[in-house]
């Protein structure tokens, strides 16, 4: 599913959810205002009025929640790699041969300033360098 559908789907789901909530609220007010109608609607008088929530409201709630979930998941950012090797490969390429262990080969503590610094240390420490 394309990611541009994420926001409309979520908004629509939220709209449906609020509509379902409002419907449930209206339904309960209706029952408390006219208690005799519930006895007519449901066959047994002992059952609580909440049990007789119409099927369409329940369905609307469930569908809207599913829509919100799907919308949020689809619109989520691209997942970050959690495998070391994938992450390392990405870091290596994005920093152009940098990476957190590049400091071990640049060795700023031992740098010979009179000759110049060997590799691109100015930009190398950008992404979470371990050795500064």
């Amino acid at each position: 599913m394309p990611s541009y559908l994420s926001r409309p789907l979520t908004v629509l789901g939220l709209l449906f959810l609020s509509h379902a909530c409002y419907s449930a609220y209206e339904h309960s007010t209706l029952l408390t205002t006219f208690p005799q109608s519930s006895t007519i609607a449901s066959t047994s008088t002992s059952s609580p009025p909440t049990a007789s929530l119409p099927l369409d409201i329940s369905l609307e709630t469930i569908i809207s929640v599913v829509m919100i979930c799907v919308g949020l998941v689809v619109g989520a950012e691209e997942l970050k790699p959690i495998t070391w090797r994938v992450w390392a490969g990405k870091v290596e390429r994005e920093s152009g041969g940098g990476g957190p262990f590049q400091g071990l080969e640049d060795r700023l503590g031992f740098v010979d300033i009179r000759v110049g610094i060997i590799s691109s240390m100015e930009i190398g420490f950008g992404n979470g360098g371990l050795l500064v």
Partner: peptide
């Protein structure tokens, strides 16, 4: 062979190294 193992390990730790 030891050198080859070291290179293999570096590839194992970093994709497309």
């Amino acid at each position: 062979a030891e050198a080859m193992r070291r290179f293999c390990r570096s590839i194992e730790l970093c994709d497309d190294y």
